[in-house]
Design a protein around this nucleic acid. Sequence first.
DNA 1: CATTGTGAAGTTCTTCACAGCC
DNA 2: GGCTGTGAAGAACTTCACAATG
Lengths: 254, 254
Amino acid sequence: MATGRTHRPATRSRGIPEATVARLPLYLRALTALSERSVPTVSSEELAAAAGVNSAKLRKDFSYLGSYGTRGVGYDVEYLVYQISRELGLTQDWPVVIVGIGNLGAALANYGGFASRGFRVAALIDADPAMAGKPVAGMPVQHTDDLEKIISDNGVSIGVIATPAGAAQQVCDRLVAAGVTSILNFAPTVLTVPDGVDVRKVDLSIELQILAFHEQRKAGEESAADADAAAGPAVTKNQHRKGPDGDVPAVMPA
Amino acid sequence: MATGRTHRPATRSRGIPEATVARLPLYLRALTALSERSVPTVSSEELAAAAGVNSAKLRKDFSYLGSYGTRGVGYDVEYLVYQISRELGLTQDWPVVIVGIGNLGAALANYGGFASRGFRVAALIDADPAMAGKPVAGMPVQHTDDLEKIISDNGVSIGVIATPAGAAQQVCDRLVAAGVTSILNFAPTVLTVPDGVDVRKVDLSIELQILAFHEQRKAGEESAADADAAAGPAVTKNQHRKGPDGDVPAVMPA
DNA sequence: CATTGTGAAGTTCTTCACAGCC
DNA sequence: GGCTGTGAAGAACTTCACAATG
């Protein structure tokens, strides 16, 4: 049903796939490192290795931005750094507020990676009156009461939530009402926001759980070998599938 | 080159798709909340709303685990909590070490979400001799020299790297050599690991850059948004979708 | 009935492989 | 020759829609 869309955007279109956008910062970091070592050009193969992706994917990604390479040579490092920075919107300055100055909030405030790439921590905000005025990362913590004023005075459109889960939605609502349209959420909760507001979440415990899943599988497979090799009836337990009966654990509640 | 890489070639062993695994912790959290409120059953529709996903997707996800629901009724909350916990490997205890006790490492050490879900911080490790012995989150920081012994004494298979970028690969190598097979990397660098070792990365600045990309696009569309409303019947307005992923608004000026 | 479980269709992302250009 | 840019094939993921079923 998609109306006209979907066709070759060719060089100039703004139809960059989300998966590609998510990798651009990775490329940018690798390119910045090369730039600092004064490397003039890279091939897709080299850059892909540095960024930890496959070279065909990298070339495809870049093709959405335009034809920035030279066949037989590679990509000009400085030029690519600029193009990707511009595409990501990093050539302008983004004031950011961090709400919730606990351990994590303080760590974020001190994190150099923010400042290094077009982001500027405009304010630190916390609900605890005892925190107000205390310096963290060289700037005084401000009280939540002033949130709206801070947002509007600084033209903030990106907010970072590092509060406890219970406070996150409320903080989110206030940020959005005050004009913030992009939120990076560290609180372990699902945020509901109106259309037009972007939320990305970073959840430490979820990442660990995903690792645990794979870890458990490794342990369980140690002897079972690869799927291919043993075609025979796989024997024994660990068969948790929709068993017709009798794999109900002792926990089954009433 | 390009050979030593190997992320996970695909999770083909037991049939659960990676995308599904990544959502299981989300479901688990929503279910745990329901459980605490003593809700006995949920429909896919309700649970999906709580987890911020689409209900068809949730049902499909659960179908990979088995047939754990009851048609016409829904899912038994306690039973599902158990099944998902087991699938994720959270019914066992995972000792974890955190390497790099700076601001971020300390924040992680204090983060309650770890302990709450089968993970136990077995040790905090830092390269700075001045840190050694200092208590963080109620446990003494240990020196990097003892890393191998700590790993083996505690049977640690999951490591968290919160060091500066420059130290990360070296720490990673030592962790792997000592027997760690899953790594959660907070350092802004690409880690190279041997086959069989899982790495997940959390990169604060990358998340912000992705937000900036969308933010920039919004700014550019500000005027185009209104113009569109006049045309279509029904369509798009208020799609009421909100994924953790955020999606590209259907505006797209060609 | 209400709601699950799932083939099938649809969409997005990845990889291949090679034409085209320097 | 070496390397990019990209159609086309393929794989993974999502969504639809409905038959199956408690």
